[in-house]
Design a protein around this nucleic acid. Sequence first.
DNA 1: TAGTGGTCTAGACCACTTT
DNA 2: AAGTGGTCTAGACCACTAC
Lengths: 263, 263
Amino acid sequence: MTPNSVTLSLHHGVFLNRYAHFELEKVLFHVAVQKRISFQVIRDEVKRRIEARVWPQGSLLPTETQLAEEFNCARATVNRALRELAEQGFVERKRKSGTRVKKEPRRQAKLEISLARQAVENQNSTYRYALVERNLVDSPGWLASQLDVAPAARVLHIICMHYADNRPFQLEERWINIDAVPDVVHADLDSSGPHEWLLNAAPFTDAEIAFSAVSADGRLAEYMGTTAGTSMIQLERTTWKDGQPITFARMTHHPGYCVRTRY
Amino acid sequence: MTPNSVTLSLHHGVFLNRYAHFELEKVLFHVAVQKRISFQVIRDEVKRRIEARVWPQGSLLPTETQLAEEFNCARATVNRALRELAEQGFVERKRKSGTRVKKEPRRQAKLEISLARQAVENQNSTYRYALVERNLVDSPGWLASQLDVAPAARVLHIICMHYADNRPFQLEERWINIDAVPDVVHADLDSSGPHEWLLNAAPFTDAEIAFSAVSADGRLAEYMGTTAGTSMIQLERTTWKDGQPITFARMTHHPGYCVRTRY
DNA sequence: TAGTGGTCTAGACCACTTT
DNA sequence: AAGTGGTCTAGACCACTAC
């Protein structure tokens, strides 16, 4: 069988609609003309069949070997295609069991959590930073449980502001576990924020974030240059390095701030 | 050279600290004992060197071929490791240029946008759905521009509620492009929401989401069983299928609702 | 034009899981 | 015990891009 006379066996026990046939023609075209079929073509075709219900939700896909035969390619190529579909949440794979179409395909949006400085500069505004408060304190109870450090452990408490074109952009309140990052006690936090310092000094391995909506109280309203009761987005973030808690931060964004992403 | 007598050349022109030496011992151990080194080991070691500034921010990594020699493995194995680090945002790869450590590593959080029903059931509550309004309307101007459909095109306007244990969970207001999904006109939306119907009938290929904080007006407060002025998280979502706009939805969550994720 | 990453192949062995 | 995905190899060719 030469690469130019490929025929595909298409008995999946499923009636294919006209659209499916048309798409298959395109696939056949690819196979016949290109010497090598790319994993992207396989990935997209498998995804199409899933959405066209050729392989219904919950059903088992052919094995990698079978698909490799159908597409006339190496098993590794099929593997790469199916691995990406598994990452994207379309299928689930288990050894010995096979590859199964997920019941409820969960697509994941990717959210970039960037530094305030980056966020401000990305919108073509001028960034300004100001340190408001900096204290060594005993960890209050709620923080000790949030960070999972000893109650009354010493932590560095920081309040600072980020401005875009001199208008309030974000109020940041942060607590840093000194046991994890002893150097932070002597860190220069007057010219740039603790977030930037930490990213350099103690890259984290795990993080947890939570978005919520809050109403500004009097103090928050003052900092953000708005009136009490205004709704604002708040982002709370806890990070760990290899299991050791590093910091807990609460960042409140100016009214009208919006977190956007595509997927 | 037998697999049991591997030596690695470790001249990166960089002074390695004690910790780095210790870690390298572990890597050597792996290479010496295991017949095959896994891409995970390479990925983690490269990541470690980046964080230890063995390869500083902005610098060029060795080529795949060089790393393959160092780790005594195939180039494909190195490629897989570096590809994952690129996906995770630690390095940037360009043909001919090579692999470069990113200046500002942007880690991405993965956010699962699930159906209201799934979100409710995940918190072990009982889900209830209610259709509030359903009208065929002419697209208002703002929607036409949001969805990029002809002004005054016909759209299906839907308002519905999602409850958790009979308490308001989410108010959903949605506009569906009838040109893209003509069948929706006759869809049964009395027993389950338009989101679920659409996922089955018209899987999207692209989506854009935006989180913001809103203050409840009188009507919203009534639906959500709260008082006017309460802060709530609002999620706006637009989806397309192959460039054709499908739907725009605005989902307002009950006070106290929180979007969480780990990364 | 040359160097680097991107991908495919054919084969092999391994690891996990179900039977 | 057997079947399926997971991964590695050694080699090959391609595609992009800096020079």
